[in-house]
Nucleic acid binder design. Structure first.
Lengths: 156, 156
DNA sequence: CTATAACTTAAAGTCAGCTTTAAGTCAAGC
DNA sequence: GCTTGACTTAAAGCTGACTTTAAGTTATAG
């Protein structure tokens, strides 16, 4: 079963121009062509494209994905490189998740901050709040944000 | 306590040029100046900058951060907008984390794939593996990647 | 056989987010 | 008062990842 660039693009839900760009950058050395020069994507190519999509979602650059594709083309001698790359990328994603979870705490704090301000009708409420009015998790974030804790927040 | 652009940049571990760029884009309307025109960052500004950093880490664009800063300048009437923004951004981050956890599964699969290939010395091992040699979590990922399950993987 | 829709390439254009450059000003120490 | 390092701005430059354009070719339906 073969697909043209437009068909596979629809299956992957990305523009055909992007796939042509990837091909130009050397990310798709495996794609066959008709005698007339039309790209023919196979089901196997679909899997490779899915892996490319996965790597892109981890924030890997086109250049680094090309390096990986080059290793694939070089054969079994590059298996350790490819394994190392996936391990590195896995660690990378784990720290990205950890990073997002940290930012989530700040967003949670800000949500509490503005919920409280909304109830009071003004942000100034936060200058009159005593520590026991502030949930513990919010106090912790405030301390992280404030290098100078006794000063009340007026910006942002 | 006040800091110059270079001092606060060091504290935040970002280039001074970036802070000047943010200022030019309207992200730092709160920064005071000396009579000579030198920026004076306060500890309170440090908190605002930390929130900007947080929003940037969630992938928010400079333009959207500026919208938020404009709301801050407009006062208490925009509290609901700011609250809604943080709620949206929180949801966004949750789905980013979910997305990364999905890609993590594919990376785990690829790690197993290349560990197995490394032990065997060749990727071809994967054409001879029977289903019971494949961990369940890996079989599930394979099915996601393969639109056509009986075909063995040769690319990537 | 021809119309047409989808394909092809190379090259130029776009956008975000900085970074660098150039020319000049400010402020602290000697 | 002068040197020096850090500051100022405006404008140009850069990078990555596409997207668009232009000119032309291929493949299918009538």
């Amino acid at each position: 079963m073969f697909y043209t660039v437009g068909e596979i693009a629809k299956k992957l839900n990305i523009p055909p121009s992007t796939l042509r760009y990837y091909d130009k950058e050397g990310l798709l050395p495996f794609v066959a062509r008709t005698s007339g020069g039309i790209r023919m994507f196979s089901d196997r190519d679909f899997e490779s494209l899915s892996v490319i999509e996965c790597l892109k979602k981890t924030g890997m650059s086109i250049k680094d994905i090309k390096t990986f594709m080059d290793w694939c083309a070089l054969g079994d001698s590059t298996i350790p490189d490819r394994l190392a790359m996936f391990r590195r990328q896995r660690d990378q994603v784990l720290s990205q998740i950890a990073q997002l979870q940290e930012t989530l705490e700040i967003l949670d704090y800000k949500e509490w901050y503005y919920e409280t301000a909304q109830k009071a009708g003004t942000c100034q409420i936060h200058e009159t709040l005593s520590p026991e009015d502030i949930p513990k998790r919010c106090r912790l974030i405030q301390q992280k944000l404030h290098p100078c804790p006794q000063e009340a927040s007026k910006n942002s």
